[in-house]
């Protein structure tokens, strides 16, 4: 067996074209789960991060905690959550949100703190309220950092959503886990390659977004990273 025959076996199977195990359906499941996790994580982390960054309170706490969450093994969190809460989207969403929130939080905090202090003073000087400064000055200048944080979070969530298939959820991880369980390498390798493609596509999407979707004034001052 070689790569080409594995791939043609995987793609050629009628199950891949229609029904619950079709490639399109698995990708849709994967993206839906990832998007849901990212949505809740953003809702939680971005406003909090903006506030912490603007007031400067709790910054050390945020940096220290965000570093520590890197040590949390996602497979352990997912299996534990399922044992405690039962199989379902909520059980898997919780660890995914916990994974995506720290990079977003750090990005929001750093983005606001990196706003040029002179610009902030000037905004206060012309009579803007704190709320106006935060939303009208600091938020736009934090956009590149937020986008970078969102990219990190997305990539991690897409990778971890694969692991989530182990506890019985859908998505591209299904191919990998089911293939391993039935020793069907064609399915496993096909699924793995699709996950890789999806992760690379997400990276490209964010690279394009950073390039074309940011306001021109922000784009110009963006530091190379």
């Amino acid at each position: 067996m070689n790569w080409l025959s594995w791939l043609s076996d995987f793609i050629g199977s009628p199950d891949r074209r229609s029904g619950p195990d079709s490639i399109l359906n698995r990708i849709a499941e994967h993206l839906a789960l990832s998007a849901e996790a990212l949505f809740y994580a953003s809702l939680l982390a971005i406003p909090l991060g903006l506030l912490i960054g603007y007031t400067g309170r709790g910054v050390t706490f945020v940096t220290a905690t965000a570093g520590a969450t890197r040590a949390l093994p996602t497979l352990g969190l997912v299996t534990l959550a399922v044992l405690l809460a039962g199989v379902g989207d909520t059980a898997v969403l919780l660890p995914l949100v916990a994974l995506a929130a720290p990079p977003l939080l750090v990005a929001a905090v750093e983005g606001v703190r990196d706003t040029d202090p002179d610009v902030r003073d000037a905004a206060r000087g012309v009579g803007m309220t704190h709320r106006q400064v935060l939303l009208g000055v600091c938020l736009p200048s934090a956009l590149p950092a937020l986008l970078a944080g969102l990219r990190t979070a997305t990539v991690q969530v897409i990778a971890t959503a694969t692991v989530a298939a182990y506890v019985g959820l859908g998505g591209l991880g299904r191919y990998v886990i089911d293939g391993l369980a039935t020793r069907d390498y064609a399915v496993t390798v096909g699924g793995a390659l699709l996950v890789v493609l999806l992760a690379v596509a997400a990276q490209l999407f964010f690279a394009l977004l950073a390039r074309y979707a940011l306001p021109p004034g922000i784009r110009a001052q963006r530091r190379p990273d």
């Binding site: 990778a159 699924g191 890789v196 690379v200």
Partner: peptide, 11 residues
């Protein structure tokens, strides 16, 4: 860095 670890292990 962005490649999902499980996918790489499997490959």
């Amino acid at each position: 860095y962005a490649l999902p670890s499980l996918a790489v292990f499997v490959v």
